[in-house]
């Protein structure tokens, strides 16, 4: 067990855990930030996507010991009032079906738009193909990302 001081959603969080514990389980079990989801544990489904700095990462693959002082953003901290352009576009397009993958989808989409404010459909597909939606909301995800991109630049 070791103590880690993490910066999550702009706040400091201290946890005492096995250094190998994936960030995913630190978030879910220890910090009760359960918006970040477990789907596969091997970085194949994208349900656990969070941001480290401005990059989307799979939190199931990052041991807590590797996070250091980097700033972590989860779905709970993406915006204060649920009004990030991607979240608004998700509501506007009524994207979710079961909803389980959507936090990961939104975090992937938000990082994409941060780094590429006006992505083509091919660029959207290239990034978003790392996130599985078992219900098949892909066409709505694409529409929502397009809309969020427009609203951001408008």
């Amino acid at each position: 067990m070791s103590t880690f001081n993490l910066t999550i959603n702009g706040e400091t969080a201290t946890v005492d855990v096995d250094p190998a514990t994936p960030l995913l389980w630190v978030l879910r079990d220890h910090l009760k930030l359960v918006g970040t989801k477990y789907g596969c544990g091997i970085a194949q489904c994208g349900a656990c996507t969070v941001h480290i700095g401005d990059s989307a990462v799979r939190s199931c693959q990052i041991p807590v010991s590797a996070v250091g002082s980097q700033s972590v953003t989860t779905i709970e901290g993406l915006s204060e009032n649920g009004d990030h352009p991607v979240q608004l576009a998700w509501i506007e397009n009524d994207v979710p079906q079961c909803g389980y993958c959507q936090a990961g989808q939104i975090m992937s989409a938000a990082a994409l738009l941060k780094n590429n404010p006006n992505p083509s459909d091919e660029e959207i597909a290239a990034t978003m193909s790392g996130n599985i939606c078992r219900c098949g909301t892909y066409t709505r995800i694409r529409s929502a990302i397009r809309q969020a991109a427009e609203n951001k630049t408008a």
Binding site: V34, G35, Y38, G82, W90, D94, P96, A103
Partner: peptide, 29 residues
């Protein structure tokens, strides 16, 4: 008439909704 998913705002902000999100004090995994 089309009405939006009543859980939509909770889903897009990561609120606890699913079975896996359910915790109680003293709970064993």
């Amino acid at each position: 008439t089309s009405r939006k998913n009543v859980d939509g705002p909770k889903i897009v902000t990561g609120k606890p909704l699913f079975g896996l999100d359910y915790y109680e004090d003293g709970m064993v995994t």
